[in-house]
Design a binder for these strands. Structure first.
Length: 886
RNA sequence: GCGAAAGUGGCGGAACUGGUAGACGCGCUGGACUUAGAAUCCAGUGGGGAAACCCGUGAGGGUUCGAGUCCCUCCUUUCGCACCA
């Protein structure tokens, strides 16, 4: 063993050992309990960031811990390799996305290896490999056969300059993020996956996921957004049937969805979305209305923007009839009605709905009150034209349905409507079908062919995969696939005539919806997955960022259920336990440039100084050599834009992988935010050196006999107790609570105890030896490299990574006497030592015999009772009037 | 607006089931070693007070022998969703 800790040497030796022994390569072993530990796969952006380090360290600690617990552990890794950044890099550098992506993967793989993660590298998957995306295409075709995938014309964000669809988050203040061009709402044909078919199951099964954070389940439930209500048909009035017959075919009624059928008698107008077919029909006869519809169409499709918009509307001149009173009700086109939810039309009840209230006020529409509060108070204090009343109450002014409470009113009205064929109860979901078409190059081709005579024709299975050409360089305008005849020109598989291949690619969320299944059998080229998947799945522990709480995790659950229904799996839920790690934060510093724009300075380049009054200020040295003052702007997520990232590669070079891992695990619990601290990282490094030095000092004295636990001194017994106490805590903290920070604190505490233990006898040596062994193994999942070396130094042939997790020696924990804390009326007043088996009476006597305690009790006569809590080693003396202690 | 989580020393955090508030680390102070610094080691470190003690977990109330923890009201911060009919 070297005298001085050299992380680079220790780490490369340990990594070489694991590599050589294939330590983390695993096979399916029937009868051995498996543990599938999965971290979300990274996008190959080029370099790891601290968020990756944190994510994969959490996974690695759990994987290594479970391995020591005897489980057959699979921890794989792969690459979410399709996507926009590769195209953007291609546009600015002229390098094909494939080349850029593969270079990044190579670099990041090396970075992951340098951090010592115990990954089964032979199972690596990259989603841009044809051997992977081929099965996206295959499953898509199976979905198409069953109607789960379908083609529909839908509203999208369209950038007219780049000629492409943009995701909502790529539209900034109504303009394309790259071109600055105003974004249009355009209806183009895209492929959808029918996730709404699974809405109820996706919602209901959330209850079967107790290993998921409550807040993620809640976010998904809100996203799915189930509401119970009624659909109601309002027949068209006589004056409008001619126009409607044209637009609506045979329907003859305007359908709405409502959760408040009890307010049906309060309807004073109908509101329909600008995209509603009735609106289009009305617009044909009315140029002003057509212009208004066009104005709404140009507006953003982002719902957050829609929410802040002023409520605007225009009358259509068309009417429907109230299903009970028969009175005509005018139809308005309103910008607050969403085409994508319910029927794209609502009944306007301004007396009992906030939005309708606002709309009615703006347009001077009548407001009727048809619900009063149960107490009746509402009628007395508020008139409907002053405020709306949106609570559940009792119906009034509602004909035969007056005087009913909410549920009774809804039931009665729905029953009556259903009898007349004008409505029924229905469940509505907020969730929409998943549009997967992207007018992008760097993604998985959608395996379809458009033929002039046969229409849309699926690519036959034996022609899969539809290969994405890898040598194209996008220029920023449109999809290069659509400009590459060699790609899109093809023969129709049905009639053999000339046809055009679909040039849209799939949303990259498709790629990440099932990659965790493929790790089980990445070499299988005859099927999507095979029976090895049923050995490893479901994933026992999934770790990733909270930002994926909805989309990725919902899509994966949906995908799993589809595969189950296709008979490919027996599993309904892919991830048993989910850990969402917190963000990594760092300080943000900036200064104003002459042109007024702020420039961000990396915290590593900022110096702090204090003036005579102790006021702290910050400065940095510019590349030119000038020193400039910078402003502290608080903490922010590590990001490029705020230039506050810490490069893991530099950290590993400077302090070592073990230090990087130890600091990220120690600074805060895994699900909370982590604040980067350079001093904290130094502290982690210092602890590792202290441990190294302690072991070095210990083994320098040579190896000696093992512990004879029967004949130890008090100090020796105390150290053994500390050892096994720390072990019990660490086991619980990692295994049950997932609180790695406190597990590490327990090891630090034990090392402090060892440092104070200066017994040089044989038995003293042996007790210290045991403590150092336990520390080494307890920390080995967190700092595996240094543990590997220390374990050898402590005299072991077998590698630390192959050792089982040590067992707690219960006998070491027992004590002959224990200290009880004595309180008087809940305030700490003394400590007494009693025999470990002392009964309540003895503890009570000991407490009352303590002079300091009695000072506050006054006299024994004042004692009302004594509460003894043996498990907590605490006794509380209750007195009626405590003495003041003086 | 709706939903959720969280407010504890100078800082990150600990206190898991209501039972010794502040573990562990950082920082800071003093000391040792050193020509000196760095590194390392030792001691101290919530506030007040000479001490006895008193006060302290965002604010206010409550339950309890006992509250950081439970209940009520309020404040602040963060996150998610947001015209969902």
């Amino acid at each position: 063993m070297e005298e001085h800790y050299d992380p680079a040497a220790v780490e490369s030796a340990a990594q070489a050992y694991w590599q050589e022994h294939g330590t983390f390569e695993v096979r399916e072993e029937k009868g051995r309990e498996k543990y599938y530990c999965l971290s979300m796969l990274p996008y190959p952006s080029g370099r790891l960031h601290m968020g990756h380090v944190r994510n994969y360290t959490i996974g690695d600690v759990l994987a290594r811990f479970m391995r020591m617990q005897g489980r057959n552990v699979l921890q794989p890794m792969g690459w979410d390799a399709f996507g926009l950044p590769a195209e953007n890099a291609a546009i600015s550098n002229g390098v094909p996305p494939a080349q850029w992506t593969r270079q990044n993967i190579a670099h990041m793989r090396a970075q992951l290896k340098s951090l010592g993660f115990g990954i089964a590298w032979s199972r690596e998957v990259a989603t841009c490999d044809p051997s992977y995306y081929r099965w996206n295409q295959w499953l898509f075709l199976r979905m198409l056969e069953r109607g789960i995938a379908y083609r529909k014309t839908g509203v999208v964000n369209w950038d007219p300059v780049d000629q492409t669809v943009l995701a909502n988050e790529q539209v900034i203040e109504g303009r394309g993020w790259r071109t600055g061009a105003p974004i249009e709402r355009r209806e183009i044909p895209t492929y959808y996956l029918n996730i709404t078919r699974y809405a109820q199951e996706l919602l209901g099964d959330l209850e079967r996921l107790p290993g998921w954070p409550e807040r993620v389940r809640l976010m998904q439930a809100n996203w799915i957004g189930r509401s119970e209500g009624c659909e109601i048909s309002f027949p068209f009035a006589a004056d409008t049937t001619a126009a409607m017959a044209q637009a609506m075919g045979k329907e003859g009624a305007l359908k709405v969805f409502t959760t408040r059928a009890d307010t049906l008698f309060g309807v004073t107008f109908m509101a329909i979305a600008a995209e509603h077919p009735v609106a289009a029909a009305a617009g044909q006869r009315n140029p002003a209305l057509a212009a208004f519809i066009e104005e709404c169409r140009r507006g953003s499709v982002m719902e957050a923007d829609v929410a802040t918009q002023e409520k605007k509307g225009m009358r259509t001149g068309l009417h429907v009839l109230h299903p009970f009173t028969g009175k005509p009700i005018e139809i308005w086109v309103a910008n607050y009605v969403l085409m994508g939810y319910g029927e794209g039309a609502v009944m306007g009840v301004p007396g009992h709905d906030e939005r309708d209230f606002e709309f009615a006020h703006k347009n001077s529409l009548p407001i009727l009150m048809v619900v009063r509060s149960k107490s009746g108070a509402y009628e007395d204090v508020r008139a409907p034209w002053i405020a709306d009343y949106t609570e559940y109450g009792v119906t009034v002014n509602s004909g035969e349905f007056s005087g009913l409470e909410f549920q009774a009113a809804v039931d009665a009205i729905a029953a009556s409507l259903e009898k007349r064929g004008l409505g029924r109860k229905r469940v509505q979901y907020r969730l929409r079908d998943w549009g997967i078409s992207r007018q992008r190059y760097w993604g998985c081709p959608i395996p379809l062919i458009h033929c002039g005579t046969c229409g849309e024709v699926p690519v036959p299975d034996d022609q899969l995969p539809v290969m994405l050409p890898e040598d194209l360089v996008p220029d920023g305008s449109g999809n290069p696939l659509a400009k590459t005849p060699a790609f899109y020109e093809c023969q129709c598989p049905r009639c053999g005539g000339a046809a055009r291949r679909e040039t849209d690619t799939m949303d990259t969320f498709v790629d990440s919806s099932w990659y965790y299944m493929r790790y089980a059998c990445p070499d299988q080229d005859g099927a999507m997955i095979d029976e090895r998947a049923s050995y490893w799945l479901p994933v026992d522990q999934y770790i990733g960022g909270i930002e994926h709480a909805i989309l990725h995790l919902l899509y994966s659950r949906f995908w799993t259920k589809v595969m189950r229904d296709l008979g490919l799996l027996r599993l309904g839920e892919p991830f048993t336990n989910l850990l969402t790690q917190g963000m990594v934060l760092n300080h943000v510093y900036s200064y104003a440039q002459p042109d007024g724009r702020r420039r961000y300075v990396n915290p590593a380049d900022v110096r702090s100084r204090k003036d005579a009054a102790g006021v702290e200020s910050f400065e940095t040295t510019l590349p030119g050599g000038d020193t400039i003052r910078v402003e502290y702007q608080g903490l922010g997520k590590m990001s490029k834009s705020e230039n506050n990232g810490v490069d893991p590669e530099g950290l590993v070079k400077r302090l070592g992988a073990d230090t990087a891992r130890l600091f990220t695990m120690f600074a805060s619990p895994p699900d909370q935010t982590l604040e980067w601290s350079d001093e904290g990282a130094q502290g982690a490094s210092r602890f590792i050196r202290r441990l190294w030095n302690a072991v070095h000092e210990h083994v320098r004295r040579g190896l000696r006999p093992s512990v004879d636990t029967g004949t130890l001194t008090d100090a020796q017994r105390t150290l053994r107790r500390a050892t096994h106490h720390a072990l019990a805590k660490s086991t619980d903290d990692i295994g049950r609570r997932r609180n790695f920070n406190t597990a590490i604190a327990a090891s630090m505490e034990l090392l402090n105890t060892v440092a104070r233990f200066d017994d040089t006898s044989d038995r003293g040596w042996a007790v210290r030896h045991e403590a150092l062994e336990v520390i080494t193994l307890m920390l080995s999942p967190i700092v595996p490299h240094v543990a590997h070396e220390l374990w050898r130094a402590l005299g072991h042939e077998r590698a630390a990574v192959d050792e089982p997790w040590p067992a707690v020696d219960e006998s070491a924990l027992t004590q002959e006497s224990v200290e009880f804390v004595v309180q008087v009326n809940g305030k700490l007043r003394g400590r007494v030592r009693v025999a470990a088996d002392a009964d309540e009476a003895a503890i009570r006597e000991a407490a009352l015999a303590d002079a300091h305690v009695m000072k506050f009790v006054g006299s024994r006569a004042a004692v009302k009772r004594v509460i003894v809590v043996p498990g907590r080693q605490i006794a509380n003396v209750v007195v009626s009037a405590p003495a003041d202690g003086s």
